[in-house]
């Protein structure tokens, strides 16, 4: 018993050390956000500021339009996630359960474009969005982020729906339900683990998205997302490291909070998703 207990503590200590190193940049960030600029590199390893400079936060808050960036980010992220879930689930459902003309072509296209990084296509996508008259709108960014790509989400849904027994659907059909009703009433609720996983993965992708929101909101800074706004802040105040650190802490706090609350569910639904 003692052996396992000591090994347990050994592992715990090892992990604690690793995590301490791992989050050192964050500790540095928090400490930097409370220091003066010269103090940031003057003090070496010492993380404690001489006297906390709370003024960094008020400066960061007023210079970066946080409330609007945050609102934009939430709107765009949720819109993108909803769009991806909706279209991937619909497509995944028919791809997973039915045979139809053009199925092979569709899957082929998915596979070919799987590796396509967004940087390659930014110019045509921008031109397209411009022609649709959607530049500088939330909708334009949502479509740009969510309308294409994400073949993985569709394939994930397809894989799941393939495993669901026929009977459920057939009995519903007998009762006279149309395909849409069957899908929304029966199938989509069943796919909850997939939906949660796709939600979280897309959430992270959209939250971190940079190039596309940057380009799409060039002439309307008030539409910027946090990632773009932060980067603009860094670009415009590139030697105000204390202010930057404070801005970074402010932008990180809400996401971290969300993740801390949701992480258990996240892992479990992801596990549920891959189990299929």
């Amino acid at each position: 018993m003692t052996a396992t207990r000591s090994s347990r503590w050994l592992i715990g200590t090892g992990l604690a050390l690793l995590c301490a190193v791992w989050i050192y940049p964050f500790l540095w960030l928090v400490s930097g956000s409370l220091k003066t600029n010269p103090e940031i590199f003057g003090k070496g390893l010492n993380l404690l500021p001489e006297a906390p400079v709370w003024e960094n936060y008020s400066r960061a808050w007023s210079e970066v339009g946080f409330s609007s960036y945050m609102l934009n980010t939430v709107l765009i992220t949720l819109g993108t996630v909803a769009l991806v879930i909706m279209r991937s689930a619909l497509a995944g459902y028919v791809l997973g359960r039915y045979d139809f003309v053009g199925k092979k072509v569709l899957i082929g296209v998915f596979l070919v474009t799987f590796f396509l990084p967004e940087g390659y296509t930014i110019i045509p996508v921008t031109q397209l969005t411009d022609q649709l008259g959607l530049l500088n709108s939330h909708l334009g960014v949502v479509l740009g982020l969510g309308a294409g790509g994400h073949a993985a989400a569709t394939l994930l849904y397809a894989g799941f729906f393939r495993t669901i027994p026929k009977d459920l659907e057939e009995s519903a059909r007998m009762d006279g339900a149309g395909p849409l009703t069957v899908f929304f009433r029966i199938m989509l609720p069943l796919a909850k683990p997939i939906t949660v996983s796709v939600f979280i993965l897309q959430f992270l992708a959209a939250w971190n998205a940079y190039l596309l929101p940057l380009v799409f909101t060039l002439s309307h800074p008030e539409l910027r997302t946090l990632a773009v706004g932060m980067s603009a802040f860094v670009g415009e105040n590139d030697t105000d490291w204390a202010g930057m650190a404070a801005a970074a802490v402010l932008s990180l706090a809400p996401v971290v909070a969300v993740f801390v609350v949701l992480q258990r569910q996240f892992v479990e639904s992801l596990a549920g998703a891959v189990k299929q």
Partner: peptide, 13 residues
Amino acid sequence: PTVVGYGLYTVYP
């Protein structure tokens, strides 16, 4: 939705 979105935003570019 997938065909239109994918066509416009992935295949066309």
